[in-house]
Write a protein that binds this DNA or RNA. Structure first.
Length: 548
RNA sequence: GCGCUCGUAGCUCAGUGGAUAGAGCAGCGGACUUCUAAUCCGCAGGUCGAAGGUUCGAAUCCUUCCGAGCGUACCA
């Protein structure tokens, strides 16, 4: 990365100055390299001279002068300007920028080795299998899928997992509701449980089972089997819907596995051994207050059944201790916020370093129809399924939309406006840039022009240089997304890149019959652009069409 | 009450210690005989919720207040 290169040059210059006694000895802090907003402030800037004030006992301007005068000869820096109150502004050589095109020959550009081959598991969506996934889950799906791809690009061994809560109260309710709906088809009236699932999809589900198995499960004693069949159909539907927006998991993990393998008992036993368990009012409690939480939490209810929390501790124990992931990232909706601290405390209690667990919360989506809020509840049957929204807006517009805001920002999703806004979605602006690139490359191919890196020095228009500068920013964007777990930078970057391409397209004609050398150099630039743009779109989870 | 997140242009949002705060949409005005006008160029639009503080420097950090969403279960 160019920033690293410049930081090293600056660091060397400070060492130089120290050796010449122009600076006294001190430990050099990390040199921060920024991209200034204004072009007159240079291509890059650093505030290191300001930061060193306390260490050198000189003022920032003096520091800057010393640093600038000690920078060794190099192929990158064109000029250095020192500006009050002590900024060092750096302009980079055009000849160096242009040469960078050569480095962008495939999609490995932008890769990092941050992960050092560590294994990381990313768990996301994990919605209850008692109903179809709703529109709100689309956000978690988009964030998770993109983050997984970026981490892979950064040298992690990634695994993507969907956790299926196939046991517990909600599943029981689901089973009872399904039983009632199924019987209804045979004109047998069985009341739907009070908190049952009222959505119409339960009727469809019952019909499906009737078509396949006829009256085989009318007997109440076979309710467990009926529930299992219902769940498996539901899960398949969830898989299909996620896959149709381009989200595919490496693993689907069933909660029931934890019960079968007695992981819960194991974990509760371990916590007991480490004195984090107490028995109060016939229930078993986890003493998270011992680790600084505000309150303790029930693991086993007074009726003997485990809570969701207990299962989740076992599940995470399984991730870390049994499957041995180095790192685990969970992507949760903000309504699970209260769960974060106690799960981390539980890991700590089990002697698992809580820093290995990252929980990324995304703020919830408020669904609206005009000015009225549309409530969402699986149980009441108020469901806007992911499926019905994306078939109207399209997968690409949806993925781009969900990713383009920071996870900390709550989102409004207006169902009426969604279709209208679809055509305004910036994703098309970006895709159009890609289509334009391919139009030129195709035409050049037919006319027998070849990409050539031999005459890159012919590239000197401002629009070309700006475009290349944006291209070589790509690795730092990827790094930012991976370290901050903030995938929303990708759509923004793609828009900026597309914009610079469109400007270039308007100002610089690529195929110029009178100038074959320039044409072939520009084809090299164009190809670099194609690679970065399509890689960005792939990470976002959006297609890169060659024609529009 | 306490905790988490947010408050930036008419709208939707970037920017989270750096210099004169940016983009899209909406608005107004221009540009197609050219490799795709789903494009480009220009104009207009802001006391960064409020007040204090920290420092060379604050939309960004701290404190208080105001407003919004979420959480605070022997639900998941």
């Amino acid at each position: 990365m160019i920033e690293d290169k410049l930081a090293i040059l600056i660091k060397k210059s400070i060492v130089n100055a120290q050796n010449k006694n122009e600076f006294n000895d001190f430990v050099i802090p990390e040199v921060q390299i920024d991209r200034p907003h204004l072009t007159e402030h240079g291509d890059f800037a650093t505030n290191i001279a300001l930061q060193l004030k306390s260490k050198t006992e000189k003022n920032a301007m003096e520091n800057a002068e010393i640093i600038a005068s000690n920078i060794l000869d190099n192929e990158v820096i064109e000029s250095i300007n020192i500006v009050l109150p002590g900024f060092i502004n750096i302009d980079v050589k055009q000849s160096w920028i242009v040469k960078q095109i050569k480095l962008i020959k495939n999609k490995e550009f932008g890769n990092h080795d941050l992960g050092m081959d560590q294994s990381v598991q990313i768990e996301y969506v994990s919605s209850n299998p008692t109903g179809p996934i709703h529109i709100g889950n689309g956000r978690g799906a988009s964030i998770g899928a993109t983050l997984a791809k970026v981490l892979k690009k950064c040298g992690y061994q990634t695994e993507e997992e969907f956790y299926i809560n196939d046991t517990g109260n909600q599943v029981k309710l689901f089973g009872k509701t399904l039983f009632a709906r199924y019987n209804e088809l045979y004109h047998i009236k069985i009341p739907i449980p009070e908190d049952g699932y009222l959505g119409e999809y339960m009727i469809d589900l019952a019909k499906k089972i009737k078509n396949e198995h006829q009256d085989l499960y009318l007997d109440e004693e076979k309710n467990a089997e009926l529930t299992e069949i219902g769940l498996s159909i539901m899960i398949r539907q969830i898989q299909d819907e996620l896959s149709s927006i381009g989200v595919k998991y490496t693993n689907w993990f069933y909660e029931s596995m934890l019960h079968e393998k007695k992981t819960l008992e194991l974990v509760v036993g371990m916590l007991d051994e480490k004195k984090f368990i107490s028995h109060k009012e016939n229930a078993v409690w986890f003493l998270s207050t011992k680790l600084g939480d505000d309150k303790d939490n029930v693991l086993i209810r007074s009726d003997g059944t485990p809570t969701y929390f207990a299962a989740d501790i076992a599940y995470h124990f399984n991730k870390f201790a049994e499957r041995k992931f180095d790192r685990v990232i969970n992507i949760w909706g903000a309504d699970h916020q209260g769960h974060v601290s106690r799960l981390k405390k539980a890991m700590k209690a089990l002697s698992i370093d809580e820093d290995r667990l990252d929980i990324l919360l995304y703020q919830l989506i408020t669904l609206k129809r005009g000015n009225t809020i549309v409530p969402l509840s699986k149980r009441s049957g108020d469901i806007i399924s992911l499926n019905e929204v994306f078939t109207e807006t399209g997968k690409d517009a949806m993925r781009f939309f969900f990713l383009s805001q920071s996870a900390n920002q709550s989102m409004d999703f207006d169902l009426e406006l969604a279709k209208k806004q679809t055509k305004d979605n910036p994703v098309y602006y970006v895709q159009y840039a890609n289509a334009r690139i391919h139009a030129i490359l195709d035409k050049a191919g037919h006319a027998d022009y070849r990409i050539s890196y031999n005459n890159l020095d012919l590239i000197k228009e401002n629009e070309e240089i700006d475009l290349i500068k944006k291209l070589i920013e790509y690795p730092s964007i990827i790094k930012k997304v991976a370290t901050e777990l903030s995938p929303h930078h990708l759509p923004h970057y793609s828009i900026e890149l597309a914009q610079l391409f469109h400007v270039f397209y308007t100002k610089c004609r690529v195929i110029d019959e009178s100038n074959k050398k320039l044409t072939e150099a520009r084809l090299a630039l164009l190809d670099a652009c194609r690679i970065i743009l399509s890689d960005t779109l792939e990470l976002i989870g959006v297609t890169a069409p060659e024609q529009m």
